[in-house]
Design a protein around this nucleic acid. Structure first.
Length: 585
RNA sequence: GCGCCUGUAGCUCAGCUGGAUAGAGUACUCGGCUACGAACCGAGCGGUCGGGAGUUCGAAUCUCUCCAGGCGUACCA
């Protein structure tokens, strides 16, 4: 419909140009918007306002010329000039009604499109270090990422979901060492635990399992472990130096057994993460291993390429990448003076790998605290001659947890650490997803656990689901009253849907495909959530104002076809967000 | 210090590629079940869109400046 109106305006402009009222060389951009206020009709264009100057006329007079030149169309009831020179289009009822057969016909496919034309997009999200369970901070990125991926798929892109597993590097060594120390506890060795070690409950669990399986196979005497190790922070030493020495000692004593411990920790935690995400309805196409980049020499290879292009130099024993010359604040280290490559070096290789896999676009979803990281990645890709503009980084702000008025502390030390699993168990998948998606992801948000768990009218998730359940309930009632839903009869009588509430609903329904498109292309799932709340409101209002199961069969069936369409769109939207649409609640 | 982000109703937030009278939810006040589900609906109350200046037919939206808050600024990941 929108396209039709646009082409009508276009024709009018061309007519005016041939009449020399408007400059022939102009190719004006036609803007047409849905109106917010029904008194302004269904669609409005500001074309007269924006072209008034080049036409050397006042906007109102020019608008009149445009309307005069506008071809007639059967769906257009009337065209008005309003305000400073807006052109308002009023559609006739028939135009509104046509949405119902469309929805019935396309059913669960209604709203999806082929806008993406099969272009390949990769969405990488969460990618938390496998050094501990996911917490509620990761939850927002997880749910947002999955919703963005699902939306893009719905508008016709081919989407791969990927998790980058940091299964290499110092943090993992700290984890392995922490596990081993707890394991020694299990064996009965008395070893002090480093300040910088991982102290979570799960470390004990992994250690205990290790001891149950392998008994004393990895046991070494405590005095050998701590011999000549520099003091920890608690004893007046440096915690970083202490833990690095401890890692080195662990590797020496365990020899080839070290990788057993390392692997035990990695798989335990990774399985835990996979479990968590999958119970949130999040499934990945690829779990990409950082270690794989090292083992295949991909990191070395990308560094060599940078070297050959002249972007590397050595200073203070470390190798630096000249990122400052490519828009970053300063140059960055890629190889530390101890010979280890940095996380950044892995990331260069990883992004290069992604681009080489032939995606039309790659999307990274990062926590907002990583925003400073974007310029250096772009610099690296540019330096390597890759198309940096194929990379889009979407930032997700942190959510602050509340329980009613009270802020829930999130510090690891205090032990009040809320895991994602805990959130799901307390709040449930549907409410958690809905709450995460309700707000723009790039805005700070307060997540109220009390509100999310409330099974009362305060909870917006139930509000939308209730609309769906209510419609289902009407059909149960219909059967009890011995009525039969005759869709054909309903379709024939759509003209009877003349109530204001009905017109409002019809317009809302027609909006759904546009909302999907906008939400997908702007990576803004909250727009869909917002829409579903509005649709639910429009329905609830209608419900309270009119009866559906009326004696008149024509009207009754017309209304039933309408609410079937509403139920369909509610279900489609909720389903896309991976939230249940219950028939009863 | 420098860089990025954010200031909209008492609270939580939409609206931001410039458009018509700035919207929801919640809180508060009042009203609606002998109704197809009251997990609902209707009405009211509530705003110098952080302050100021500019750009133009028109600014919450764009530019500049100031104020306030968050984040970043590692040979950590």
């Amino acid at each position: 419909m929108k396209q039709t109106l646009k082409s009508l305006i276009e024709q009018a402009i061309i007519t005016l140009q041939t009449q020399d009222i408007l400059d022939k060389t102009l190719t004006p951009k036609i803007t047409l918007e849905r109106t917010r206020d029904t008194s302004h009709g269904d669609f409005a264009s500001n074309i007269a306002l924006s072209l008034a100057k080049s036409a050397k006329m006042n906007p109102k007079a020019f608008a009149e010329k445009i309307i005069a030149a506008l071809p007639a169309h059967e769906m257009v009831h009337k065209v008005d000039i309003a305000g400073p020179g807006f052109i308002n289009f009023f559609l006739n009822q028939q135009a509104l009604h046509q949405i119902i057969p469309q929805i019935h016909q396309h059913a669960e496919k209604f709203g999806v499109s082929n806008l993406g034309a099969g272009k390949k997009i990769q969405v990488e999200f969460v990618s938390a270090n496998p050094t501990g369970p996911l917490h509620v901070g990761h939850g927002r990125g997880a749910v947002y990422g999955s919703a963005v991926a699902d939306l893009l798929e719905a508008v016709g892109f081919e989407v791969d979901r990927e998790y980058y597993v940091n299964d290499a590097g110092r943090q993992m060594d700290i984890l392995a060492t922490s596990i081993w120390l707890r394991y020694l506890d299990e064996c009965g060795e008395e070893v002090s635990f480093p300040v910088n070690g991982y102290r979570g409950q799960y470390v004990y669990e992994i250690a205990k399992k290790l001891h149950d399986d392998a008994h004393n196979e990895y046991r070494h005497p405590a005095n050998l472990i701590l011999e000549d190790i520099p003091a920890d922070e608690a004893q007046g030493g440096d915690k970083e130096i202490h833990i690095d020495a401890l890692i080195a000692r662990t590797k020496v004593l365990l020899g080839t057994q070290y990788k057993d411990i390392f692997q035990a920790g990695l798989s335990f935690i990774l399985n835990d993460i996979k479990d968590d995400l999958s119970s949130f309805g999040i499934d990945y196409h690829t779990w990409f291993s950082e270690r794989q980049l090292m083992d295949t020499g991909a990191i070395k290879k990308s560094l060599t390429r940078l070297e050959n292009e002249g972007f590397l130099y050595t200073k203070n024993g470390a190798v630096w990448f000249k990122s400052e010359s490519l828009g970053d604040e300063k140059d960055r280290v890629v190889v530390r003076d101890n010979g280890q490559t940095t996380y950044f070096a892995s990331d260069i290789a990883y992004h290069l790998n992604k681009l080489e896999r032939g995606y039309d676009q790659i999307i990274n979803i990062w926590g907002a605290d990583h925003h400073g990281y974007i310029p250096r990645i772009n610099a690296a890709l540019t330096a390597l001659g890759a198309e940096a503009k194929k990379l889009t980084v979407l930032l997700v702000q942190f959510a602050v947890l509340y329980r009613g008025e009270e802020k829930v502390s999130m510090s690891t030390r205090s032990g009040e650490f809320v895991t994602l699993r805990h959130l799901r168990e307390e709040v449930g998948k549907d409410a958690a997803r809905f709450f995460y998606l309700m707000r723009r992801s790039d805005q700070h948000m307060d997540f109220d656990l009390k509100l999310a768990t409330s099974k009362t009218n305060e909870n917006p998730v139930f509000y939308v689901q209730y609309a769906h359940a209510r419609i289902c309930s009407i059909f149960k009632q219909m059967q009890e009253q011995q009525f039969i839903c005759d869709s054909k009869l309903g379709m024939k009588n759509l003209a009877l849907l003349t109530q204001e509430h009905e017109s409002a609903l019809l317009k809302k329904l027609a909006l759904y495909p546009e909302v999907l498109e906008k939400a997908a292309l702007n990576y803004e799932p909250h727009q869909l959530v917002q829409y579903l709340r509005e649709l639910a409101t429009a329905f609830h209002t209608y419900y309270n104002a009119h009866q559906f199961l009326v004696p008149d069969a024509n009207l009754r069936n017309a209304r039933l076809t309408l609410i079937i369409a509403i139920r369909q769109v509610l279900a489609n939207g909720l389903n896309l967000l991976d939230i249940q649409s219950p028939e009863a609640m």
